[in-house]
Simulated assay, not measured.
Amino acid sequence: MPISPTDLARLPVRRLGPTDLLACADLSENRGWLREEHKWGLLLTAGTGYGIDDPDGDGLLACCVVTSYGPGLAAIGMVLVAQRHARRGVGRRLMEHVLAEAGETPLTLYATANGQPLYAGLGFTEIGRSAMLKGHFSADAVTPPIPVRPATADDLQEVLRLDREIFGLDRTPLLTRLPAFADHLRVAVEDGTITGFAAAWPNMDTHVVGPLIARDTATAQALVASLAEATERPLRTDVDVRHTELVSWLTENGLAPVVTNAVMIRSLPDLPGDATRRFAPLTVAAG
């Protein structure tokens, strides 16, 4: 017997953990997304997962993950509702629970066109857009001759300092997982100072470039080119559309725009940090 909308709205929300990874991946697949088990493993250990169990015992009915950056900001990602219960208020039920849990903490998320009306109705406003690009890096366009090398353990404190300056908040719990999570981690160094860093991590058949933090566009380009040299997989990245020069350069180098998403925020006029030097997130799910 189908679950009534009233009963759906009363289903309990519970915390998710690493043991729920496969159930989250199954729900991703149910909605036509990639399974992304590697990414789910990071999100469920570095962040807090929330889910609604299917009362019929068929896995998860809905889920999402919240990545906290302290009282100044938290990011919501991977908001998914099983196809058979889409458009029946389950997503709103889950989001209202997350908002209550967050309290006064400002929240941000990347919204698809389908999800944006729900988030707007919950008090989120659009502050920008992000373009996903994907493809084999061709190296056709010129790459600036800025020195880039593999990161070492000795670089960690300088990377964290630079990230706090540009991101605007402390991401230490997330970024210290990068050496184990990413296949490649690069730093740009000029005059003995780290001026940018980027990682490439495996996601199904691609390497995702993110985070991408750099002093300027030329440094961002050099970091991407260095990561591309280290892999034969297609690259995928999500770039703030305001970085038109980087988007054009990536396109010239074989990456095609796939989709754009709205960057939304609640309880703040804008994201903290310096958007001119913040080129791509580690993953849109973590803000």
Rank of each mutant, 00 (worst) to 15 (best):
204 M>Q: 15
153 A>L: 08
201 W>M: 00
171 R>V: 03
151 A>Y: 09
169 L>R: 03
161 R>W: 09
221 Q>T: 03
146 I>A: 04
167 F>L: 07
223 L>Y: 11
134 K>W: 13
141 A>K: 06
145 P>E: 15
130 S>Y: 08
202 P>N: 12
173 P>I: 05
156 L>Y: 04
195 T>R: 13
214 A>P: 06
125 T>Y: 04
164 R>P: 01
143 T>H: 05
218 A>Q: 10
133 L>K: 02
146 I>M: 05
118 L>S: 00
194 I>V: 11
198 A>M: 07
169 L>S: 01
176 T>I: 15
134 K>S: 15
208 V>W: 01
164 R>L: 09
154 D>R: 08
184 H>I: 08
113 A>P: 04
171 R>S: 03
211 P>R: 07
185 L>K: 00
170 D>N: 15
132 M>P: 01
171 R>W: 06
219 T>V: 10
132 M>Q: 13
189 V>N: 07
137 F>L: 07
193 T>Y: 03
118 L>Q: 03
211 P>A: 12
117 P>V: 14
161 R>Q: 13
119 Y>D: 01
198 A>T: 04
129 R>C: 06
122 L>A: 11
216 D>V: 09
159 V>S: 03
227 L>Y: 01
146 I>L: 12
208 V>H: 01
181 F>K: 00
124 F>I: 11
217 T>L: 05
195 T>H: 09
203 N>R: 12
124 F>N: 08
132 M>R: 14
123 G>Q: 09
165 E>T: 11
115 G>D: 06
224 V>Q: 00
165 E>C: 11
163 D>N: 14
218 A>W: 02
164 R>Q: 09
188 A>R: 08
223 L>M: 12
163 D>G: 10
158 E>I: 05
208 V>N: 03
206 T>P: 02
132 M>F: 12
227 L>E: 04
136 H>P: 14
226 S>P: 02
223 L>N: 10
167 F>M: 02
179 P>A: 14
130 S>V: 14
133 L>H: 04
203 N>H: 13
154 D>K: 06
201 W>P: 00
204 M>V: 15
149 R>H: 13
209 V>T: 00
171 R>T: 02
147 P>H: 11
118 L>C: 03
130 S>A: 12
149 R>L: 13
128 G>E: 03
124 F>H: 06
151 A>D: 10
155 D>P: 04
222 A>Q: 05
124 F>Y: 14
127 I>R: 06
153 A>N: 05
219 T>H: 02
220 A>W: 04
138 S>V: 14
196 G>H: 02
170 D>W: 14
138 S>W: 13
196 G>F: 00
123 G>C: 08
145 P>R: 14
179 P>T: 10
152 T>H: 08
182 A>Y: 01
131 A>P: 05
196 G>C: 04
169 L>Q: 05
206 T>M: 04
207 H>V: 02
209 V>D: 00
134 K>F: 14
132 M>G: 09
197 F>R: 07
